[in-house]
Amino acid sequence: MLVLTALALLKLNNLFAVAMLAGIYSLLSAALFTVMDAVDVAFTEAAVGAGISTVLMLGCIALVGQTSKQPPKPAFLPLFVVFVTGGMLVYGTLDIPPYGDPDNPVHHHVADYYLEDSSHDIGIPNVVTSVLASYRGYDTMGETTVIFAAMVGVLLLLVQSPRRRGSYKDSSLKSSYHNSSDNHSMHSTSEDDSYPGDN
């Protein structure tokens, strides 16, 4: 199912359908995560991947238009690169211990400690939460800082009113750009009010 959805993503040129299918793809992978016992991850993937990122994609598509060009010719060089990469990865999996074996080395590094000692170290039943917030608190703080940085980046890129940047060299682009910016000039003034120190 996942592979079929991904192939459909490859084929489609209507970006609206692409955004919707990306949401479906996320939801399917969330189901797969549940099957593999990762309930927390499935929850996050369903909320983030299928919810928020679809909304963001749609918001972006509403701004940039809906259709994508059909690529003029089948691209053989990327295909070659992809197959070489895939072949190398398949060769690499031959050394990996089989799926689901309890004796895999990955289960006996720190996971044993987390599972056995967290009940009296921390005393909450959900091991994922205790590892996330306590044993690996530094890690989570780093992630929080990363999404904070992403917010700062998006605000720097998008909060400015679109009208002020009119000084591009190409005149044909400039004229079409000005026409489109007139439509939302009302909006940009309201944003200017909330951000007087901007720009």
Binding site: G59, L63, A150, V154, L155, L158, V159, N183, H184, H187
Partner: peptide, 12 residues
């Protein structure tokens, strides 16, 4: 704030 900055661009 990410949603606002995308949607506020043209009023989605």
């Amino acid at each position: 704030s990410i949603f606002y900055s995308f949607a506020g661009r043209r009023g989605l």
